[in-house]
């Protein structure tokens, strides 16, 4: 069961010099203010607040707060200790719950207070996903929450020395691949064929590629059969990949099919 991307919003700010960076709850509130109206969207039933660096304050459970602010019906928790891999793991958990039928409307919020090496900006991204339930979202059927759009196909962790190979396997037989590259990745290793590369903002770490998704996802619809977001946790040498398919795209499935499937694709 693919989880369709209903909406994705970002927030970014540069803390004033000498000022304390925003806490996670403040970032969550700023994200919620940007979420588009979606009256048909079900309340989230699974909710993960993701961060690489913990809030200095250790009392408020921001995950509980976010749960309350989005309907209070979710199995909610904070997911951390995975560096830039956190959002990818959260989506993997969401996909697992969806596949077992126990979480068909997940919400993932990624927050980063900033002020650290590799994350000078404070930022956040909030993703709402939903199963193929046929409900229209903002903008009607062709809008970002409509029946089409991007759907989460897979999330995997790959040793960094096999990333280039993994990227190459994602290049579709027809259509193009968009690689959205975040921290620790090497754009020079991108496949040469039918692949475009976008590089995420350098002032963010855990939120980087997701910010680009929020900024440009709508413009990618109909242009790319496959969108792959990638970031590398340099501490563990792990590459994290989230693969999104365009539900509107009628291209062939990506390279890597059986020989028979390739032959049929070429000759019909």
């Amino acid at each position: 069961m693919s989880l369709r991307l209903r909406s994705v919003v970002e927030h970014v700010e540069t803390p004033a010099a000498g000022a304390a960076p925003p806490q996670h709850t403040e970032l969550v509130e700023r994200l919620l203010a940007r979420v588009p109206e979606d009256p048909d969207a079900p309340a989230p039933d699974l909710m993960a607040l993701v961060y690489a660096v913990a809030d200095p304050q250790g009392h408020k459970t921001t995950a509980s707060h976010l749960n309350h602010r989005t309907g209070g019906a979710a199995h909610g928790f904070a997911l951390t200790d995975q560096g830039v891999g956190g959002p990818f793991i959260a989506l993997r958990v969401a996909g697992a719950y969806a596949r077992t039928g126990r979480g068909t409307a997940p919400l993932v919020a990624v927050v980063e207070s900033g002020g650290t090496a590799g994350a000078s900006a404070a930022s956040g991204v909030l993703l709402r996903l939903g199963g193929p339930d046929g409900l229209d979202g903002p903008g009607g059927p062709d809008g970002p929450g409509g029946r089409g759009g991007l759907a989460l196909a897979d999330t995997v962790a790959v040793p960094v020395d096999r990333l280039a190979e993994a990227w190459a396997e994602l290049v579709p037989a027809k259509g193009r691949l968009l690689l959205v590259l975040g921290p620790g990745t090497d754009p020079g290793a991108a496949p040469a064929e039918r692949t475009d590369v976008r590089t995420a903002p350098a002032d963010s770490s855990c939120t980087a590629v997701w910010r680009l998704l929020a900024q440009e996802a709508e413009s990618w619809r109909g242009r790319y059969a496959t969108v792959a977001l990638c970031a590398v946790d340099t501490a563990t040498g792990t590459g994290h990949l989230a693969v999104l398919r365009d539900l509107d795209d009628e291209s062939e499935p990506p390279a890597g099919n059986t020989e028979e499937e390739e032959e049929e694709a070429r000759h019909g």
């Binding site: 607040l49 459970t61 921001t62 995950a63 509980s64 199995h75 928790f77 904070a78 997911l79 951390t80 200790d81 995975q82 891999g85 956190g86 793991i89 993997r92 962790a157």
Partner: peptide
């Protein structure tokens, strides 16, 4: 695949 789950205080083990 290693990650932490938190912000449920004493209830977190079941999650």
């Amino acid at each position: 695949n290693a990650f932490a789950v938190t912000q449920q205080n004493c209830a977190v083990s079941m999650s």
